[in-house]
Design a protein around this nucleic acid. Structure first.
Lengths: 250, 250
DNA sequence: GGCACACAAACTGCATGCATGTTTAGCCAT
DNA sequence: ATGGCTAAACATGCATGCAGTTTGTGTGCC
């Protein structure tokens, strides 16, 4: 349907670039502070600066990109001070999600959720980037099941933003226990225990935040053209449970 | 005020158009479904279509405008089904705001809040549009006092969106009680009673939603038949009905 | 008189070009 | 050699032009 299109400004080209950049960002291929020149983006994706610019505007509205007048756009660098707020908001939003979902999910939906967690499990051996993306997409998948456009949009945004925060402040890997927490959450949703689901979600996100916000700093170099290489092809994304081949290493 | 610039993509021109349109929308000068052609916008604000287009993109990202490919942009028309979700999310967000603010406000801030409510009071005789805008801005003012950029952005967005919903489904507006509720809220914040403030805010927004969503009977953009019902009986001249297009600020 | 097709006007999608502001590299003076 | 100044390269800000799509209108056929 017209889901993503309706949400995001334009459609085809702008949407494609947005998705690609979003994904590159949450997989930490583009780290906070990475420069995003309109020229390079346009060239990479085969469009003009106008479109690249528009896409950057959208991502800036989502808080993933920082736009300063007459300056090159960069991947947003959330402040540590905001991190706590971000996760608090996320807790509030996702409590709404599970409250609305508890006991209302069909078997098909439950199965889809379990399948996704299985995919997370399968990705444990692989690179962190995929694990992080899958974990984030689990939450977005939940939000989508509410069928509430606003909730979907906000949860998606805040989840992406949390990813960004994690990539700044989190240790190399910390998503091990998250998977079991996801499973428990699905159980609670299936049994219809809204309070338990809300509590589980609350502590789950809280735990992620806790694990993340202990350390600080992690500067590294960046080369836009090289990083974006794997994202430049206009494939429609290998689904949610996808087993992406990781040849991103230059 | 000045923070708006930092939040939204570009700066001067795009930001100006966004602010003007936002305000026109929440004051119901632009009703849901109103057409927003890029040409007209550009001409009105003395810029090219490029800029107008960019502004529309931003507003679409905020959910105030609907953008469909190859079609004229229109002011968003929230569905009644989404209304309850919208207010629920708003409750969740604003509970966070007051929780964070309770007992932490300076005298100056308390005074500013009281002054704002006084302004709301003073505007009671005037047009509803101003009352609605002021009521909305009270909540945004609160959010801004948290100094949490994300919270500010989300509360602003959802508040504007609620305005839009209200303009669709609400009766002519009865904001008398809302003002006293604002005063009570300030008192609770001043005394530092976070729980009470959260409860007050919760019920305040709930009451607004309740007042709005019981009377589902104001179908203005999406139910042509109902709109035309009063006109069905042989009235050739609808006087100055609704040919309004762009009366934005200047 | 009513319906369908076709043409014309309007609007968006997008690229390109020019002007302006920022970054950087090179040069001169100390 | 180093610090500061200048100019070129670079990147953005924005307008305009052209192509493709949608919408409104008029014409011919039934």
């Amino acid at each position: 349907m017209t889901r993503d299109k309706a949400i995001h400004a334009s459609s085809d080209k702008v949407g494609t670039i947005c998705r690609a950049l979003r994904r590159a960002i949450i997989e930490q291929a583009l780290e906070p502070g990475a420069k995003l020149p309109e020229d390079a983006l346009g060239e990479r994706f085969g469009v003009s600066r106008t479109i690249a610019r528009h896409a950057l505007g959208q991502l800036a509205a989502e808080g993933l990109v920082e736009l300063r007048r007459n300056r090159i756009a960069v991947v947003a660098t959330p402040r540590w001070q905001e991190a706590r707020d971000t996760f608090d908001i996320r807790i509030g939003l996702e409590r709404l999600v599970v409250r609305q979902l508890a006991g209302r999910l069909s078997r098909v939906q439950i199965s889809a959720l379990r399948a996704h967690v299985d995919a997370e499990d399968a990705a444990r051996g692989g690179p962190d980037a995929v694990s992080i993306r899958l974990a984030t997409e689990f939450h977005i998948l939940l939000a989508e099941m509410t069928e509430s456009p606003i909730l979907i949009r906000y949860v998606s945004e805040i989840a992406y933003r949390c990813c960004l925060t994690l990539s700044l402040f989190s240790r190399p890997h910390s998503s091990e226990c998250a998977i079991s927490e996801h499973r428990l959450l699905i159980d609670a949703l299936e049994s219809g225990d809204a309070d338990k689901a809300m509590s589980l979600m609350h502590h789950h996100i809280d735990a992620v935040a806790e694990r993340a916000l202990v350390t600080q700093a992690k500067p590294r170099g960046h080369d836009i053209m090289a990083i974006l290489a794997p994202y430049a092809d206009t494939k429609p994304m290998p689904a949610v449970a996808g087993k992406r081949k990781l040849d991103a290493a230059e």
